[in-house]
Amino acid sequence: MAEKKLNLTLKIWRQAGPNFVGNFAEYKLAVSPDSSILEMLDDLNNDLENKNLEPVAFESDCREGICGTCGLVINGQPHGPIPKIATCQLHMRHFNDGDTIWIEPFRAKAFPIIKDLMVDRSAFDRIQETGGFISVNTGSVPDGNAIPISKDIASEAMDSATCIGCGACVAACKNASAMLFVSAKVSQFALLPQGQPERYQRVQAMVKKMDELGFGSCSNTYACEAECPKGISVKNIARMNRDYFMAKVKTENVES
């Protein structure tokens, strides 16, 4: 645990509200290399509050990389330069004394900025509400072991289900596409036997909602996979594409 502090220049996006023009503010501070980047922002905010200045609005909650609340674009990369971690797990020892760090919010039409580094990701919830579930009522279910599921399928479904809904895939994609997020949920249920009855209805409904909400299309740059804190594979997108075609070809539904 090093005693030495890093002297850094921060360029942080400040924007008073959704309809305000934002710009970068510059701050200089010294930070312990053992701090996380969010703890550094806590420090900064404490200093600002001491000077009666408004602190930088940013969101975080669990600070252990699972709740998906935090999400900053650090030097152009969602969740910063280290792969497979969320912003809260990025520690300052990965930076050098004298560095300048640019911190921006996630940018996408479907994720409007609320204030400073806070964005509105409720579009994700709207997508989930259209089909991200299996329709079973409480109580009316068979025994947990009634349907055996192969270990491989269960693990693959788990890999898809591990998505934390942070939105880094959208932030990283040059098209601000939500395909990785949506496909992870579609895949989880498409893989499991429990998800089969609603499989085709689900994928159509969720894709339709995704398109309505103003996300871009996927152009297979795979930036989403590279920036995903949980390493969710673009194979999920392929699976969703396949299911979408099959839904269109196989079902008689002409509405969705």
Binding site: V136, G139, G144, A154, A157, A161
Partner: peptide, 10 residues
């Protein structure tokens, strides 16, 4: 049982 039916990948 409930969670398995919901698609929780235990």
């Amino acid at each position: 049982d409930q969670c398995v039916a919901q698609g929780v990948p235990f």
